[in-house]
Computed example of a mutant assay.
Amino acid sequence: MRTLGPGSIASVLKIALDVAYVVMILVTGLLLLLWVASIFIPLDNLNVTVSDGADGREMPLSRPLLLFGLGALTAYFSGFLLILRYLRKIFRTLTLGDPFQPDNVRRLRQIGLILAVVTGGVWIVQGLVAARLAPGVMEPQGISDLLTPVFSVLVVFVLAEVFREGARLRRESELTI
């Protein structure tokens, strides 16, 4: 089976990305609706248990806590929705058999930036939760927990440069007689 062009592995992956994109739109939309609804729903006598394994800490569920949690979750899924959006556009060019387009360089850079923001946001939010919401129950993440995500972000930026070089070479070859 071919890797690029119509009927290729790239086209199958494009279909999978399309399905994931629709699912992510639905999940993000539902979370956004829950966030808006949480402004109005009564929270009398509701508790939340925060745990990191066997032990846990029960505390009352306040509106700011609920809004913060749903907002953070919505932002997390929104970031990945944007990443899927750009990946779909990249895979569309792969399906057409024309991957080295300048737009793909921009898209890969945007994916890297969004991935960096999501990674940093998760790290900060987990640190806040560990320090403020569940001190002694949850451990804050350390710098070592960022190694794999930072490596992934760097790989995306390197791929963007590979695509930039490919687009440059393609442009040069088009000018050659």
Rank of each mutant, 00 (worst) to 15 (best):
L146G: 02
R106K: 13
L159T: 01
L34I: 07
W123Q: 13
P140Y: 14
V162F: 12
A134C: 09
A20G: 01
V27F: 07
N45V: 06
S8M: 14
L115N: 09
R132C: 13
N104G: 03
I15G: 15
A134L: 10
A16F: 13
R132T: 12
A16R: 12
F151N: 02
N104C: 02
F77P: 03
L113F: 13
V129G: 01
G29M: 03
N104L: 03
K14W: 13
I15D: 15
T93M: 03
E172Q: 14
L169C: 07
V125P: 00
S173N: 15
E161R: 01
L82A: 07
F91P: 00
F100V: 07
G127R: 02
T28S: 13
P102K: 09
W123C: 08
D44G: 08
L26M: 14
V48N: 04
G71F: 12
R170T: 05
S38Q: 09
G5M: 14
V36P: 02
F157D: 03
I124N: 08
T3V: 11
V36H: 06
V122K: 00
M59K: 10
L46Q: 15
V156F: 13
R132K: 05
V158A: 06
R107A: 02
E58C: 03
M1T: 15
G121P: 06
P64R: 07
V125D: 02
I90K: 00
